[in-house]
Design a protein around this nucleic acid. Structure first.
Length: 424
RNA sequence: GUGGGUGUAGCUCAGGUGGUUAGAGCGCCAGGUUGUGGCCCUGGAGGCCGUGGGUUCAAGUCCCAUCACUCACCCCA
């Protein structure tokens, strides 16, 4: 084969679409209920947008970005996530002048240059929400509850919600210093990556999975024990609200998340059935992000879920989609009829918005019936020499096999008036 | 970026130690006594055996490279 989809990308085929649409429909129904409005931002931005938001030191920026220079010499990058772009748009369009909070949702492809694996692609789809303008713990709760409701409606059982607070610019730096001090003497026991992290981004030490590092880090100070008064109170308030709504969570002091803009609440929904790419979605609070873009200080909290990964998990857990209904009309007509009244009927039905199809392949009646069956059409209209002579139209209900004859007017009234719900 | 596994029809997979015209199931197409789907039966189409080199009289089979997928690391959706 000469050309294949580029490494780490996938075609989403017509047969995949029912599952995709199901996810999108469930997500958008929640957005409506929760009051989120859609925004679509460009698929690429100035690299700076991502460096400033996601973080210079993050893996995403360091080694996973698709960066390129356009013909005008602009340095751009395909978006590795969408919070940065949405935040940029928030400032650019003066959304801080709107009644707060401003609640936005998005969906679309993201790009990360990473080694592909099941559940990890170079182009993948995320759907996410952002709530700007409030520090109220209720807004953290809303975002988490939204995510949890989303997974519930898809039929997930047993997903785990990991929860942590990563502090704020008041309490995180002192904590990071403490961490450095404590870990420094044990430096020799750490993996090379962690030795580097100790310098650049000590928080990331915490979620290293190398066994040696975990041992070396035992008894290290926990961030949830070093939060400032504000952060501690905020975290408590979020937890209280989760309890109130009966949402189970697992406190995970090692949950750090790789995007540097997070402050306070960080959370992640984790699947047991997925191997190492187990995170189905996550998010948190980012109170300094808008300011980092030179916008007016504006807190925010948001989340994103990964479409392909959810689909994988649903398949593994045997979660079914709503069954496909029989729908529409297949016109099984002899050639002479199809050149005349069959053609007229076909477009009459289509103009009325019905799913209607006829044969272009010169099939026999038997083959057309089979085709109508496989194509999941509800009705077959059968036109042959005999029905033409008698001036009647045969219609067959494929669901039950019942068949009857109508005049043209009756047929139209039946198909258009009652749509396709009732039986022949 | 590091290490392991895999790569044969549209799909899921068979093809001991290299040996003629590469198979099955599903799907697709056609037919089963002059045109009515589902079940069943029969037949047909469809494969540069991922790609490129090499070894050999002979390679789907062995070797090397490359690409892709996959698992783990890493990272995260």
């Amino acid at each position: 084969m000469k050309h294949k989809a580029p490494r780490g990308t996938k075609d989403v085929l017509p047969t995949d679409m029912p599952a995709w649409h199901h996810l999108e429909n469930v997500f958008e129904a929640l957005c409506r209920a929760y009051g989120y409005a859609e925004i679509r931002t460009p698929i690429f931005e100035d690299v700076e947008v991502f460096i400033r938001s996601v973080g210079e030191e993050s893996d995403v920026v360091q080694k996973e970005m698709y960066t390129f220079t356009d013909r005008g010499g602009r340095v751009l990058a395909l978006r590795p996530e969408c919070t940065a772009g949405v935040s940029r748009a928030f400032i650019e369009h003066g959304f801080h002048n709107l009644p707060q909070p401003v609640k936005l949702y998005y969906r679309g492809p993201m790009f990360r240059y990473d080694r592909p694996q099941a559940g990890r692609q170079r182009q993948f789809y995320q759907m996410g929400i952002e709530l700007f303008g409030s520090t109220d713990p209720g807004s953290d709760l809303e975002v988490i509850k939204f995510t949890s409701a989303f997974f519930d409606r898809l039929g997930f059982k047993g997903l785990q919600l990991h929860l942590n607070s990563v502090g704020c610019r008041e309490c995180r730096p002192p904590y990071q210093e403490r961490l450095k001090e404590v870990v420094e003497p044990r430096k020799a026991a750490l993996c090379p990556d962690c030795q580097k992290r100790l310098q650049d981004n000590p928080l990331r030490l915490l979620d290293c999975k190398v066994p040696g590092c975990q041992v070396a880090l035992q008894g290290v100070p926990r961030i949830d024990e070093h939060l400032c008064a504000f952060c501690a109170a905020h975290f408590e308030a979020v937890k209280t609200r989760l309890d109130l709504l009966g949402i189970d969570y697992l406190l995970d002091p090692r949950l750090v998340r790789g995007l540097d803009y997070y402050t306070h609440t960080a959370f992640e929904f984790v699947s047991q059935s997925l191997g190492s790419q187990y995170s189905l979605g996550g998010g948190g609070r980012y109170d300094d992000l808008i300011e980092a873009f030179a916008g007016p200080p504006t807190p925010g909290v948001g989340m994103a879920v990964g479409v392909e990964r959810i689909l994988l998990a649903m398949e593994k857990e045997g979660l079914s989609l709503p069954p496909a209904e029989l729908e529409g009309v297949f016109i099984a007509a002899a050639p002479a009829a199809m050149a005349n009244e069959g053609l007229v009927l076909l477009y009459r039905l289509r103009e009325a918005g019905l799913r209607a199809e006829a044969d272009y392949m010169g099939r026999s009646l038997k083959a057309m019936m089979k085709h109508a069956h496989r194509g999941k059409y509800r009705f077959a209209v059968i036109l042959d020499e005999e029905t033409r002579e008698r001036g009647v139209w045969k219609i067959r209900d494929m669901a039950v096999g019942a068949q009857r004859e109508y005049s043209y007017e009756e047929l139209l009234a039946y198909l258009l008036g009652q749509r396709v719900e009732d039986r022949a």
